[in-house]
């Protein structure tokens, strides 16, 4: 059975990606779901609160089987359609999203999903992928060609510590969570590029 939370996340992020980026691929949607989950961690919630889990795909990038299944379900129901190169949400999908967004159980996670999607106002999908490729855990798993659970206890503790530093660096507490996420992704790009000896952000 399709995970209802993953299904909601798929529609909400699918809608945003259709608007901001003319559509999405499965891996892009997966990456945005993972980014939203990071914002939930940033907000102090344990990763177990996210309702579904992520593993690292062979490429090293985050993959949630529940999201993959939700995309397939949404396509089957006509909520998402495949274009020549990318998926987009349909009018029916938008209507379904409105109904699901009004449910209490989906209320809290919308700020994380919206925060993640709004990073596309500043960064391209390629930039976001590049940033996560520089995350130390994802980079390690990719290098080892290993499939493993992401956001396990040690990884979560590391991220909690990093996000504490991020909160300190932000001089105010933004309600809009795209602010810390954009800063975090740019930090990963900046430090990752310096390590690779390519021009960083200036």
């Amino acid at each position: 059975m399709t995970n209802p939370t993953a299904y909601f996340d798929t529609l909400l992020l699918g809608d945003k990606l259709s608007t901001f980026a003319s559509g999405f691929s499965r891996s892009e949607l997966q990456l945005m779901c993972y980014a939203a989950c990071l914002l939930s961690l940033y907000d102090g919630h344990p990763s177990s609160d996210w309702d579904y889990t992520f593993i690292s795909a062979p490429s090293g990038r985050p993959l949630a089987n529940d999201v993959d299944e939700a995309i397939t379900t949404a396509i089957g129901l006509g909520m998402i359609e495949a274009g020549k190169d990318l998926f987009t949400i349909t009018a029916r999908g938008k209507d379904e999203l409105k109904v699901l967004a009004a449910l209490n159980l989906n209320h809290l996670r919308q700020k994380y999903l919206n925060g993640a999607a709004d990073t596309l106002l500043v960064l391209t999908p390629g930039n976001i992928r590049e940033a996560f490729d520089f995350d130390i855990n994802i980079a390690y798993l990719k290098k080892q060609n290993k499939t493993d659970w992401l956001l396990d206890e040690s990884d979560t503790n590391r991220l909690f510590a990093n996000f504490t530093e991020l909160k300190k660096a932000l001089t105010y507490k933004p309600k809009d969570l795209s602010v810390p996420l954009v800063s975090w992704l740019k930090y990963l790009i900046q430090t990752g590029r310096v390590d690779q000896n390519v021009p960083a952000i200036n």
């Binding site: 991020l166 300190k168 795209s178 800063s183 740019k186 900046q190 430090t191 952000i201």
Partner: peptide, 17 residues
């Protein structure tokens, strides 16, 4: 992955949002 707070702060200070 330890954070370089100076780099982070500099990035935030230049981020319009």
């Amino acid at each position: 992955q330890s954070i370089n707070p100076d780099v982070l702060r500099k990035l935030i200070l230049s981020e319009p949002l």
